[in-house]
Design a protein around this nucleic acid. Structure first.
Length: 517
RNA sequence: GCGGAAGUAGCUCAUUUGGUAGAGCAUCAGCCUUCCAAGCUGAGGGUGGCCGGUUCGAGCCCGGUCUUCCGCUCCA
């Protein structure tokens, strides 16, 4: 049972998640559906609590951030404007010998880079030869070998661009063959056809197929915010800088979707788009990097578990971008992205919709398209991060073992278990009384079956922070024991103190205070 | 998608040249009443992932298919 390495550990976490009602595979009775998962009774609670914590940290704690809930269906032009129709298509090609898959555009770009390398070598050689009298510009524009290579590059780029624009995949393959590009692994030119993978799911609107039109399930929630920028700004009388937050499902037809709920075809995002004055983006980029990292750190996990990863290669819409990575059992992986999106999105929506999406800045006495700073976190990934960090297999002093989920108290699915020590002598009745008081504020569980030790372990396994046990002494002096999940220690307290203690311990308040410092 | 491994009860696994499926834990009922899992008695639960082939006979051999895990790749 005990995990000896990270691979075992991850497997055990997955089994634990299923065994205790956190995550089930979708449509399991039909053999499941690849890369789609369902949240069970405890998973749904944990997920909701994470979402709530994010929402409160972003919307409730910031006067200038408001939340919306946009639809999953959007006008198809949205995705032309956002660049997803074009940029989310990767032409892929396999080498039949090495069985490795490559992006066709990357193969061609790398080939071009090689030729550029040749040119640079030529330039450097000349520089040493001519010493002081060397003029790089003249050399680059007159040297025969340089010109020849430069023409090669220009020709390739021209041909490749034309092929992409015409969506001519046969031509893309022909380019690879003509350039005699070989697979770095096998060294052969034995390529399959180039295939296109559209990462957006499409469906039909309209009941009759002839009248229907194709629309997409959104691949990101952000566009629902951009198209509502003016609605919210005007009706909320928002002044720049201000933010719009949203949580919701998004869909991507991943070629390879794996690693449990880390990469799913249907997933939930928590995004906030912060609208700012152009030119201030680096300032806000820095601010939100720090602010979002604080949020992650407020969960009390070891500092070494999080790190920033700055993007060198930027997406089509960004001028600066980084990830907050978390060390999952399978390594450091992206949890949240922070992107400076410039005016790319609003600018394009202006272009495609013909509507002005601008903000009048009274200080500057002029209108502009705001710049956007995005924070985008995967809720399911956050769930997995918390689950894998919380999961612990412990060896106790008496030699026995327990599995405990050390979930931060305020995120735990069940906050408190009410346990009569035995199933008679009026203890169940007393326990029910307490349960009926606590249920107004917290999700509690009442359990009377099995030995008390077994019941404690079951609560540990789902991460319940507190167990209230009613024993014979309770009937005499109105006291109970409260047992702490992490230390397994017990205290005897008066029944009237339970609500206060529990209220303080499981409150989100402490964490929120930590991030607003 | 490609390559490798795997799929038998809710979970972990057994059934060894192919002869019509078993254990522990879990679940449920009853007994016991005990502050950190594994006390006693009994019960339910499987068309062996699915489809097909070989065979008198397939959980076991063969083919296909689905799903999961690992590697390649991408992203939240």
């Amino acid at each position: 049972m005990a995990s000896t390495n990270n691979e075992d550990l991850f497997k055990n976490i997955i089994s634990h998640a299923k065994e205790y009602g956190f995550i089930f595979q979708s449509s399991e009775i039909y053999d499941g559906l690849s890369a789609v998962y369902d949240y069970g009774q405890n998973g749904a609670e944990l997920k909701k609590n994470i979402r709530d914590y994010w929402w409160k940290a972003m919307v409730q704690m910031n006067e200038n951030i408001v939340g919306i809930d946009a639809s999953i269906f959007m006008h198809p032009t949205t995705w032309k404007a956002s660049g997803h129709v074009d940029a989310f298509n990767d032409p892929l090609v396999d080498n039949k010998d090495s069985k490795k898959r490559y992006r066709a555009d990357v193969l061609i770009e790398e080939h071009v880079a090689k030729i550029e390398g040749k040119i640079n070598k030529e330039v450097e050689k000349a520089r040493t030869r001519f010493a002081d009298g060397f003029n790089e510009y003249t050399f680059r524009t007159t040297n025969a070998r340089v010109l020849e290579n430069q023409k090669k590059i220009d020709d390739i780029n021209l041909r490749f661009k034309a092929a992409l624009e015409a969506n001519d995949l046969v031509e893309v393959r022909q380019i690879i063959i003509d350039l005699e590009i070989v697979c770095p692994i096998s060294g052969t030119r034995n390529w399959t056809d180039v295939r296109q993978f559209n990462l957006m799911f499409s469906t039909q609107v309209g009941s009759v197929s002839e009248e229907s039109s194709t629309i997409y399930l959104r691949p990101e929630t952000a566009q629902g915010i951009f198209v509502n920028f003016l609605n919210v700004q005007k009706t909320g009388r928002m002044k720049i800088p201000f933010g719009i937050a949203q949580t919701g499902k998004a869909f991507r037809n991943e070629i390879v979707a794996r690693q449990f709920i880390f990469r799913m075809r249907e997933f939930e995002q928590m995004e906030m788009q912060y609208f700012i004055k152009p030119g201030t983006e680096m300032e806000w980029y820095k601010y939100w990097k720090e602010t979002r990292m604080k949020w992650h750190r407020s969960l009390g996990f070891p500092e070494s578990k999080h790190r920033f990863h700055d993007h060198l290669k930027l997406a089509h819409y960004a001028n600066a971008a980084c990830d907050i990575e978390f060390e999952f059992p399978f390594g450091f992986k992206e949890l949240e992205g922070i992107h400076s999106r410039t005016d790319f999105d609003l600018g394009n929506h202006e272009k495609f919709s013909g509507k002005k999406l601008q903000y009048f800045d009274p200080e500057l006495d002029q209108s502009y398209v705001p710049y956007v700073l995005e924070t985008s976190i995967g809720l399911d990934r956050m769930f997995l991060a918390i689950l894998s960090q919380a999961y612990a297999e412990e060896k106790l002093e008496d030699g026995s073992e327990r599995v405990v989920l050390r979930i931060p108290f305020f995120l735990a699915p069940v906050k408190c278990a009410i346990l009569p020590l035995v199933k008679k002598d009026g203890l169940p009745e007393k326990a029910r009384e307490i349960m009926n008081r606590l249920r107004f504020d917290h999700l509690c569980q009442y359990e009377e079956k099995d030995s008390i030790g077994k019941r404690y372990r079951r609560q540990d396994a789902i991460g319940t922070p507190f167990c209230i046990t009613i024993d014979h002494q309770t009937l005499e002096d109105n006291t109970v024991t409260i047992r702490h999940r992490d230390s397994m220690l017990q205290e005897r307290i008066n029944i009237n103190e339970i609500e206060k203690i529990l209220g303080e311990k499981v409150s989100m308040r402490n964490a929120l205070m930590q991030i607003s410092e």
